[in-house]
């Protein structure tokens, strides 16, 4: 599986990273070199092998679905680049 320049543009769009047109070719080469190296995994017979879901065998902890924390909206927005009255400010998204 080889990554072409259109794929680089599509993946960059999905990842929400603006890629300059002059860097597309270099990125395609870099991604291909990594993906090519990863392809050795195809040698492994994985028939009947379960994919790992948890690295340590423990029962997932559960807790009661109740509020245990919160009620400090100012702390939540404290680090926002733009905030007003404890709300995040973003560019207009509705026409």
């Amino acid at each position: 599986m080889s990554v072409d320049q259109a794929t680089v543009r599509r993946v960059a769009k999905l990842a929400r990273i603006k890629v300059k047109e002059e860097n597309v070719e270099r990125l395609a080469d870099e991604l291909n070199s990594i993906l090519h190296w990863i392809e050795q995994l195809n040698e492994v017979n994985v028939d009947g092998v379960e994919p790992m879901t948890s690295v340590v065998t423990v029962k997932m902890k559960k807790r009661k679905d109740v509020v245990t924390d919160g009620n400090y909206p100012h702390d939540v927005v404290e680090n926002a680049p733009a905030a007003e009255d404890d709300y995040f400010l973003v560019p207009k998204v509705i026409e």
Binding site: M1, V44, V46, V49, M52
Partner: peptide, 12 residues
């Protein structure tokens, strides 16, 4: 092809 296969290899 990639992620599920990698997690299977992790099991191995």
């Amino acid at each position: 092809a990639y992620y599920v296969r990698a997690q299977k290899i992790r099991t191995l």
